[in-house]
């Protein structure tokens, strides 16, 4: 069942003002409808402008095929999986699906961590996707939520993810992750955040 787990702020880019946002655990019908009716048509239209998935990175639209509703419903049955939404101004501004995985970095090899399977901000918040993105900070709020979950489950803040090419630079710089390796199986770069990285991220 959907549960309010925290309040944060996003930055409205045009005015530079802070706007209240809510973080929810477990997606509900409202999030599904926002995805189906608001996100998906925009993602599909942008993706259709380019011929390949690779070049969709230039438009920040490489996730246009992600099936959020199906994934979220599947996650409800599994104890290790969780979904989260960031809402602001009555709309879903970000979505995240997490699972439990194991570390690859030498310092935490084999130790449990939160693996961020999917993370996306609403299309209207994305640079390159729109000329004037609306809110900034959705990704940061969701990564902070993954860290909090990691702490709650006893994993001390450790998290990891595979990044789409369009997001690699964010995870490497602003996200505070370690760029571990190119994962040939997934054809994506793999990033991890250590306990120390997580503490730095939270304190910033």
């Amino acid at each position: 069942m959907k549960e309010l787990i925290g309040e944060r702020v996003l930055i409205e880019r045009a005015s530079g003002t802070e706007v209240p946002a809510q973080i929810f655990r477990t997606l509900d019908q409202k999030n599904f409808e926002d995805f189906r009716n608001r996100w998906h048509p925009l993602l599909k239209a942008r993706r259709a402008e380019v011929s390949s998935w690779e070049s969709a990175a230039d438009l920040n639209a490489q996730d246009s095929h992600w099936e959020w509703v199906e994934k979220a419903l599947e996650a409800e049955r599994m104890m290790g999986r969780d979904t989260f939404a960031v809402e602001c101004a009555g709309e879903t501004q970000g979505l995240m699906l997490v699972d439990v995985g194991f570390g690859r970095l030498a310092v935490q090899r084999g130790l449990e961590l939160i693996y961020v399977e999917l993370l996306a901000t609403a299309p209207w918040n994305r640079p390159k996707f729109v000329d004037a993105p609306i809110y900034k900070g959705v990704g940061r709020v969701l990564i902070g939520t993954a860290i909090s979950l990691s702490v709650e489950l006893g994993f001390n803040g450790r998290i990891a993810l595979h990044s789409l090419r369009q997001s690699e630079s964010w995870y490497r710089t602003a996200g505070g992750f370690t760029d571990v390796e190119f994962d040939a199986d997934k054809r994506m770069r793999y990033f991890e955040m250590t306990e120390a990285d997580a503490a730095t991220f939270v304190s910033d």
């Binding site: 599994m78 006893g154 001390n156």
Partner: peptide, 22 residues
Amino acid sequence: RRGMSKTALVRQALRLYQSVTE
């Protein structure tokens, strides 16, 4: 060894067991 509380470890064991069983 895993740097977790016993409660966290039991929860993690349940997650893994469910995942494997499914």
